[in-house]
Design a protein around this nucleic acid. Structure first.
Lengths: 207, 207, 207, 207
DNA sequence: AATGAATGAGCCTTCATTCAT
DNA sequence: GATGAATGAAGGCTCATTCAT
C-alpha cells in the first residue's frame, strides 16, 4: 500500500510526516490543506498523491503511524510486573503525561482524531479506534493482582468504575486546559488530585 | 438580533431549524453547507443570511436553541423532591435517554458542538459551554440527602465517582450504538446494566 | 418623475438625501449599498424604490440635486460687477473653497461623480456633465473687461490658458491632499500659490 | 511573485493580460469580473488564482505591466536631444496620441487606474502613482534650453502653465471624443489647435 | 403610502486531484 | 520518480429589486 513512501530515505519521510501531522493536528481533517503540507514538507504537489493516493488514505496512514509510535513507547515503559491495580493506573497516567510532553503534535493528532467528525474519514476511523480499544483493553489489566479487591462485588465492575474515574478526571483537566487562556495543563495538580481519588477508591474497593 | 427569524410563522421556523440542525449535526460546522440547508428548508439563499447574518451566527443561534430545548424539558421532568442520589441519577439517565429518543438530531448537534474544533466558532462556543457548565453543575445535585453516604471519605469525591461512572456508561453505550450497523440504542440493556452498577456503588459508598 | 419624493415633508427628504449622498460619496456608485442608505435614513427598503424607481435614477437625481445646490450658492455669491478677469477667478477660487468647507459631502459627491466610471451611470452622467459645462462656461466670463488684455493674441485662447492653469492647480492640490495621510487641503498654501500665478499670468497677458 | 505567470508561453500570457486589461478598463476594479476574464482568456477559474493569488494582486500587476509598456515606448520615442521646450512638448503630445491609438485598452486602464477609488486597491495604487510621479516628473524637462524664456518671471511657473495648457487641451479633446457617437479622436484638429496655442504661448513667454 | 421578507444570480476564492512532461 | 500547471465544482455571502400585505 504505502511501500513507495516507506522506501524513501528516512529524512524525507520524517519531513512529510511531520508536516502532515502538524497540519492535521492544527486544523482537523477537512480544513487541513494538502497545499500547506507540501509547502512545509518541501515536496511537490503530485508527489504527495503519488505516495498516498489521496487525502483520506494519507490521514488514515498517519493515524496508524501516530498510534503505533505512542503505543510502542507506552507498552515499552509500562511495568507489567507491577501487579497492584492502583499503581498500574498511576504508572499509566504518568507515562501518558510524559509522552504528551515528548510528542505533543502526535498526541494532538490522535486526540483530534478521536473527535474527528468529517464524513470522509469518520467510518474508517471509528473502525480503527474500536479495534484498538478491543486489543488494548485487556493489556493494561494484564497480570493485575485481583486478590486485593473486595469479593462481595463483581470485580469487572469495580475495575471499570476505577478506570472511568481516572479517564473522566483526565478529560476534565484537558477540557479545563482548553478553556483556560494559556491552554496549559497543570500536571502537579492532576497528580495530587489523582492521589486523593486513589485513597477514596482504595477505601471503597480494597478489602 | 434574531428577531426577524423569530417573528416568522412557526412552520417555516421549524423547517429552517430542522434543516440546519440536521446538516450541522451530520457534517460538523465546516463541512455543513448553507446550500444544502436552504435546499432542504426550501427557502432562498439570501433569506438565510437575511435572518442570521452569517453561518457562524446561525450556528451559535442553533446551539442556544438546542441547548434550551433540551434543558427546558430536562428540568421540567426531573423530580427535585427525590432526595436519594442514586434515584436522582437513575432519573437523569432515563430522562436523558428519553430525550435522546425524542430529539435525536438536536442531541446529536449538541454532542458534536462540544467537540467542534473549527476555529471559526471554537472560541464563542467554548465560552457558551463554560457558562452553561457553571450554571447547571450545581442544579442536578440540589437537595440531595447526603446523610446516607459513608462519612470516612470526601463526599464530593464520592459524588463525582458516581457521576463519572454513569456518564461513561452512557457514553460507551452510545459509542457502541454508533458502531453498530443499525445505530440502535438498547435502552433495556442500559437500564439493567445501570441497576447493577447502582448496587455496586451503593455497597461501596453508602453507610 | 420624482414628484412623489418631492412632496415629502422636508425633514424626511433631507434624511434620505443626506444618507444617500454620504453613501455614494464614500463608496462610489457600484459599492454604495441601498441597504446602508435605508438604514441611515431610517426608512424601509421598498420606500426608496417607490420614490426613485431604481438605484441609477436615484444617483442621477442626487447628482442634479447636488449640482444645483452648489451652483445656486456659487452664482449667488459671485460678483458679476467685478469686471477684472483675475479678480473674478480669484473670487471663484475662494467661493469654491468656502463651499467645500460648508458642504463637504455634497462636494465629495460631485467630485466622485466626475470620475464615476460605472457602466450603469457613465453615459447619462457624462451627458449631464457636458450640458452643464456648455451652460456654465460662458457664465463665469460674463461681463469680463477684455480691454485689459494684450491685443496681439486670440483673447479666447488667453482666457483658456488662464482657466486651465487654475483648474490644474486645484486638481494638483486635491491630488496631493488625496495622497497625504491626513487628506487635509492646505487652503492658505493654495491661495498663496494662486497669487503667484496671477502675477505671472498678468505680466504675460495684460497690456 | 508572479514568476509562475511570467514563465508561461507568451501567447497565453497575452491572452490573459488582454482579457484582464479589457475587463478592468471597461468596468473598473470592483465591477470587473474574474469570471469574464477567464472566459475571455479561455483558461480555468482556478488558474487565474494560481498565477496571481487574488484579484487585487492581479490588478496591481496589470498596473505595473501597463505603465511599463507605455513608459518604455514613450521614452524610447522621445528625442531628448530636442532642447526647445515647445518642440519637446509637441513631440510628447504626438507620441502620447500615437500610443493612445496603438494601445487604447492599456491607456484606458491606466487612466481609469488614476481615478480608481475602490478601497481594495486605493492605498496601494496611490503609493505606486506617487512613486511614478516622483520618478518621471523631471525626465520630460531634461535638457530643456531655458535661455529662450523671459527672465522676468519664475521659469518653473512658466513651464507649468505651458504643461497645464497642453494637458488640459488633450483632456478636453479626449472628453469630446468620449461624448461623440463614434468615439473618434480627430488628430489633425488637435495638431492644428496645439500649434495655435504654441504661438500664443511663445509670444507670451519667450523673450 | 409604507413595509421588509423574499429572491437568485453573481461575486471571489479554495481545494483535492490529475496528467503531460 | 518527480513536477506543478491545470481543472471546475463548491464554498459563503451580497445585492438591487419585487411584491404581498
Amino acid at each position: 500500500m504505502f511501500t513507495k513512501f516507506l522506501n524513501l530515505e528516512t529524512e524525507k519521510q520524517d519531513r512529510i510526516i511531520n508536516a502532515a501531522i502538524k497540519e492535521f493536528a492544527q486544523k482537523g481533517y477537512d480544513k487541513a490543506s494538502t497545499n500547506e503540507i507540501v509547502k512545509e514538507a518541501e515536496i511537490s504537489k503530485g508527489l504527495l498523491f503519488h505516495y498516498f493516493g489521496n487525502k483520506k488514505l494519507m490521514y488514515l496512514f498517519l493515524f496508524d503511524y501516530c498510534y503505533e509510535t505512542i503505543a510502542d513507547e507506552f507498552y515499552k515503559k509500562i511495568d507489567l510486573a507491577e501487579r497492584d491495580f492502583f499503581n498500574r493506573i498511576r504508572q499509566a497516567v504518568l507515562i501518558k503525561m510524559d509522552l504528551l510532553n515528548k510528542y505533543p503534535e502526535i498526541f494532538k493528532f490522535i486526540e483530534e482524531a478521536y473527535f474527528e467528525d468529517s464524513i470522509d474519514v469518520k467510518a474508517e476511523l471509528e473502525k480503527k479506534i474500536k479495534e484498538l480499544n478491543d486489543i488494548n483493553l485487556g493489556k493494561i489489566y494484564e497480570g493485575i493482582d485481583l486478590s486485593k479487591f473486595r469479593e462481595d462485588m463483581d470485580i469487572k465492575k469495580i475495575l471499570k468504575i476505577i478506570s472511568y474515574t481516572f479517564e473522566k478526571l483526565s478529560e476534565e483537566e484537558l477540557q479545563k486546559a482548553k478553556l483556560s487562556p494559556t491552554h496549559q495543563i497543570d500536571y502537579q495538580k492532576i497528580s495530587k488530585e489523582a492521589e486523593e481519588y486513589f485513597e477514596v477508591l482504595t477505601k471503597a474497593f480494597y478489602k
